[in-house]
Computed example of a mutant assay.
Amino acid sequence: MCTIFNRTIYDVVYQLQQEAPHPRRVTCTCEVENRPKYYGREYHGMISREEADHLLSVAEGSYLIRESQRQPGTYTLALRFGNQTRNFRLYYDGKHFVGEKRFESIHDLVTDGLITLYIETKAAEYIAKMTINPIYEHVGYTTLNREPALKKPAPVTRDTPDGKEPHGDDSGLEQRLTSLVRRATLKENDRAPKYEKVHNFKVHTFRGPHWCEYCANFMWGLIAQGVKCADCGLNVHKQCSKMVPNDCKPDLKHVKKVYSCDLTTLVKAHNSKRPMVVDMCIREIESRGLKSEGLYRVSGFSDLIEDVKLSFDRDGEKADISVNVYEDINIITGALKLYFRDLPIPVITYDAYPRFIEAAKLAEPDERLEALHEALKLLPPAHYETLKYLMAHLKR
């Protein structure tokens, strides 16, 4: 682990980012007609590639913007890197971009581009090997699933022959590995089902230096340096996200709502077999509504049903749906029906649904039962447990 932590601090990629060329704007000294309002003095109008190359020969990192001679009305970012001029088609939609990343200013775009070009040139082989020995296998969720969880967070220590803390200032290390430590010390609930869940990765901009929680290498660039799981907060390189196993453990601080939340995400976040909405609503319905006529047929007031939804989204398990607040039981049944309608993936998933339909068409009872049994196997655990509980409730 010591070598991994050292690599995290003295990262090759981090050092290369520090060494990358700095942007040098080549200013146009004359007035240019029809200059787009979103470009500044770096805009040189319709000049040729040869003229741009001559202007940029002053230094690495020099850049300018020109209008294309071949396609008037389109713009090119000309950038000096590696002793040659590189030309990129430039776009603007409120922000400047040449690829996926969008920037507030041309200066930021060029800075990020120079960093990326420099790192990809100097460390291509290193980057290709970053995922070979990931720190994730030692400190990630795989450790949690294999070893008993600690009751209290343990201090981060490096491996040393005598087990003592090494000398030196390691405060930066602890700060950078905060999320890794958090993962390594999360309490595992033995009662919680081992539901497999893919990570919900979104492109993310990290403020300040950040390290990948999969490979422990620096995440380079100014913006959109990597991806972050919206459900559990895991931060990794975009290329590393393809290697992370389907072991997402949603954290309540990341899961902001109950309704419209993926069913598996919700149950994992609450360490339960089923969504607490289903359990709480069904308990309330069975305690005071089983003899009500038209229990799931009669609709409650829509504004009060929406109020129940907002209460669950805001208060979670502390939501009050008792008779003291909602006397009409049809409001609770309406809230339960709304929960199922709002699921992004239905209880009977899109993959399993055709199998259920095929099973229902079978005339022979034993064959139909066997086909239904096979169809149920296609449901994720959270969906299966929810359907099982709901069917038992409807039978009652």
Rank of each mutant, 00 (worst) to 15 (best):
L295T: 14
G40L: 06
G334V: 09
D279K: 15
D366Q: 06
V347T: 12
P250R: 13
M243I: 07
H138I: 04
E358I: 10
K388S: 04
D231M: 01
D170I: 02
E125C: 10
V58M: 06
E364R: 05
K37T: 14
K197A: 15
E370K: 12
H199S: 01
T349Y: 06
D262E: 09
M276Y: 03
E286T: 11
D366N: 05
V156M: 06
E317D: 06
S62M: 14
K151L: 05
S68I: 09
R146K: 08
Y14D: 04
Y126Q: 08
I47C: 03
R207G: 06
V26R: 02
H199W: 09
S299C: 09
K129P: 07
K101N: 05
I285A: 02
V58K: 15
E51F: 01
K238A: 04
P153W: 06
H167P: 03
H54P: 00
T160V: 08
L64M: 15
E317V: 08
L266W: 13
G99Y: 14
K129E: 14
K253N: 10
T178Y: 10
A335T: 04
T29D: 09
Y141S: 11
L369I: 14
Y10S: 11
R41A: 14
Q84E: 11
W211S: 15
C28H: 05
K202S: 10
K151V: 01
N271P: 13
P36N: 00
L56E: 10
M130Y: 06
Y339F: 12
E188H: 10
V12H: 08
L186G: 09
Y339G: 02
C248M: 12
Q18L: 07
L394T: 05
E284R: 14
T143Y: 01
A230K: 12
P23V: 03
A269Q: 09
L376P: 01
H167R: 03
A224R: 04
P148Q: 11
S299K: 11
K309D: 04
F5H: 01
H210E: 11
N133W: 14
V181K: 02
